[in-house]
Design a protein around this nucleic acid. Structure first.
Lengths: 342, 342
DNA sequence: ACCGATATGGCAAACGTTTTCCTGCCTTAG
DNA sequence: CTAAGGCAGGAAAACGTTTGCCATATCGGT
C-alpha cells in the first residue's frame, strides 16, 4: 500500500471515448459492453472508432465493482501440479472462456486452515461461483466453519459447487463412479481375470467407496480382496512393497482406485521383478493424460472432463436453483496392461 | 449484463463496520487494511471487534478499483495440462501468495490471436504484472501487435516478464540452459558414452539452441549429431520412428532438449524393440515431475522452479527498473536411463 | 506558559463504470 | 391529425473504498 505512485500517464477512460465520439458516457458504455439497450448504428460506429483510436481498455475492476460481481469462477483445488487437476482446470478454463467467464485457481495444499483462508480471500473478489474439486477433509469442526463461510457467500448471491467432494452441504457434480467401475469389473472378468486385489482409499471418501463396490459387483461379487491405502502414487507402491511375495502371487490383477495408485503399483511390481502384464495385470481409474508415458499403457476408467467442465460452467452461471443433476457417465478403457488372460 | 438481480440482502460494507465501531470510515479502513497511518489501540480494537461481529468481507473489486491496481499477477501460458507448466504455475502461486499476491492463469493454446486477445482482456484487470512462459511464436507481425499492446500496458504502470521466451522486447528471466546442458554433456561423456543423437527444436528458440550447443560443448565438440523436431512428446517419437534401424544403431545415447521429447523417444524405442538403457541410453531436460512414473528413471537437467518463481514475484513487485539479472542455474541429474557405459 | 512537532481522527473528493429515470423524437394506428 | 407507444440519448446517482487535507489533541522542550 503506502504510495501507490508507480508512474504512468492518465489512463484512457470511457469518458474520453465518449467525448471524442461526441456522445454521452452511457451511450459509449452501451456500445462497448454487451448491454441490451440499442444504440443507433451511426453512434455505435463513432464510439467504436473512438475507442480504437484511443486504444481504450475498459477497467475491469470498475466494472466488477459497480456490477457487484465479477466474471470470475474460482476453482479451489488441493494441488495443481498433479495431472488430474491440471487437466480438469484446463477443461474448465476452456469452457468458462467460451461463456465469457474466466477461471481463477486457488491452491489449498490440502490444509483445512488454508482452505478457510482461501475462501475468505475469494469472497472478497465476489466471484460468480466457487468450485471445489477433490477429496475433502474428515475433521468435521474445520468443515463447519468452512460451511458457514460458504453459506455466507451463497447468501450474498454466489454459488458453491462441489466436484467429487461430499463433505460439504452444497450442490454437487458427481461422476457415475459406480457404473464405470462396474463396467471395468465386467470387462476384466470377461477377459479371464479371476483373483483381483483392489486398492481403496484409506480416507473414507464416498466416491472411492463407490468405485470399490462397483468394481466388486461387476467383477464377480465376493471374489475381490480390498486393501485400503493412501490415495496417491506412494499409497499404491506401499501396498505392493509390504505384501509378502507368496501373497501377491495369489492375484492375477491389481486395480487402483486412482491411476496414480496404479502407477505406484506398477513401479513397485517392477522393483520386485514382476512383469506387467505377463505376471500380473494392473488397472486404474480416471484416465489421466500422463498414462501415455507409461509402459504398458494402463487400462483405466475414463472420466470425461469436458462434460464435467461444461456442467460446472452451466450451473455456475445458471439462476439459483438447479439441483444436483444426474451424475456424469464414465466408461472403462481397456489397454495393454490388461490383455486377455488364460 | 441485463438485470443484475441475483437476490441477496444488502452486503456488509466498511461503513457499517465504522458505524458499529463508532468511528469514521477512514479510520476503519486504516485498521482493516495495512495502511501506514496509525490508529489508537482503543479504536483499533473496536473496529476489529465490529468487523468480526458483522462478518465483514472487504470488497476486493472496490479496493482494486480505487487503488488502480490489483494484487494479481497474470501468468500466460500455452497449455496448463502439461506437467512442466503446471509445476511452474504451482511454484509461482506459492511464492506469490506469500507476498500477498495471487496468480491468475491464462491459457493461449499457443495461438497468436488468442494470445493477443488474452492480453487485451488481462489489461482490463490491471494486474501488477503479466508473466509469459514458454516458447513464443515466429510470425513477427503478430508479435509486433502483441508487443505494442504490452508496451501500452507497461506505460500504464504494469510490468511484463518473460520466462524462457525471447521473441518479445521485455525483461527476461532466463535459465542457464547452456551451463546445465554442458554439465550433462560432460557427465555423460564421463560415463563412457561416445555417439550422441541430440534432438533440438525445429522452431528456432534461443533457449533450445543453447541446450543443444551446451550439450555439444560438454560432451565433446563435434561428435554429436543433431536433428530438429517438434518440441513435444510426438516430436521425440517421430524422429526415432522415422529413422532407419541401422542408422539408429550408430548411437549409444539420445538426448532430447525437453523431457517430453525424451519420453516420446523412449516410447518409440520400446515399440522398436530396443531396450533402454541396455541397447541405448536416453536423457532429457527440465526434470518434470512425471518422470518418476517412467521406467527406467530418466537422466535430465533440473530446473529449480522455486528459484524461478521467486525471481518472478520479486521482479513483479519491485519498482520499475531491475534489468534482466543473472540466469537461474540448472544442473544435471543422473538416473538409471544413462548407466555407466562400456 | 508558549511554540513546534507529532499523533490521531474525520470530512469530502475521487476513482470509472453502470443503471435508473426522464425527455424528446419518430412511428403507427385509429 | 392526434394519441399512444416505442426507441434512442443523456443527466445524475450510485457502487465501496482510499486518500489528501485540515482540525484537534497531546507532548516535549524552552
Amino acid at each position: 500500500m503506502n504510495e501507490t505512485a508507480r508512474g504512468g500517464r492518465r489512463r484512457v477512460t470511457l469518458y474520453d471515448v465518449a467525448r471524442l465520439a461526441g456522445v454521452s458516457q452511457p451511450t459509449a458504455s452501451r456500445v462497448l459492453n454487451g448491454s441490451d439497450r440499442q444504440v443507433s448504428s451511426a453512434n455505435r460506429e463513432r464510439v467504436l472508432r473512438a475507442a480504437r483510436e484511443l486504444a481504450y481498455v475498459p477497467n475491469a475492476s470498475a466494472q466488477a465493482f459497480v456490477r457487484g460481481s465479477s466474471k470470475m469462477i474460482a476453482f479451489v483445488v488441493g494441488r495443481i501440479d498433479g495431472t488430474y487437476f491440471s487437466s480438469m482446470a484446463a477443461a474448465l478454463m476452456r469452457e468458462a472462456r467460451s461463456a465469457g467467464y474466466w477461471v481463477s485457481i486457488a491452491v489449498t495444499d490440502r490444509q483445512p486452515e488454508r482452505e478457510l483462508r482461501v475462501v475468505r480471500e475469494l469472497r472478497a473478489q465476489r466471484p460468480r461461483a466457487i468450485v471445489f474439486a477433490g477429496s475433502g477433509f474428515i475433521d468435521p469442526t474445520g468443515n463447519e466453519v468452512l460451511a458457514d463461510e460458504l453459506s455466507g457467500y451463497e447468501r450474498a448471491g454466489g454459488k458453491v459447487l462441489l466436484i467429487s467432494r461430499t463433505d460439504l452441504p452444497f450442490e454437487r457434480i458427481s461422476f457415475d463412479n459406480r457404473a464405470g467401475a462396474e463396467g471395468l469389473g465386467q470387462a476384466l472378468a470377461g477377459l479371464g481375470y479371476q483373483r483381483a486385489l483392489v486398492l481403496g482409499s484409506e480416507t473414507p471418501l464416498l466416491g472411492m467407496l463407490h468405485r470399490v463396490e462397483g468394481f466388486s459387483d461387476g467383477f464377480a461379487p465376493g471374489t475381490v480382496e480390498v486393501r485400503q491405502t493412501a490415495l496417491s502414487w506412494e499409497g499404491g507402491r506401499d501396498v505392493v512393497e509390504r505384501m509378502p511375495p507368496e501373497q501377491l502371487s495369489r492375484f492375477d490383477l491389481v486395480v487402483g482406485v486412482t491411476d496414480e495408485m496404479a502407477l505406484g503399483v506398477m513401479a513397485a511390481l517392477r522393483v520386485h521383478g514382476r512383469r506387467v502384464p505377463d505376471d500380473i495385470a494392473v488397472a486404474g481409474f480416471n484416465d489421466i493424460r500422463t498414462l501415455r508415458d507409461v509402459s504398458p499403457p494402463l487400462t483405466t476408467v475414463h472420466v470425461p472432463l469436458d462434460l464435467v467442465a461444461e456442467a460446472v460452467v452451466r450451473r455456475a452461471i445458471a439462476g439459483h436453483e438447479e439441483g444436483s443433476g444426474p451424475p456424469i457417465p464414465t466408461h472403462p478403457v481397456l489397454r495393454e496392461s490388461t490383455p486377455p488372460h488364460h
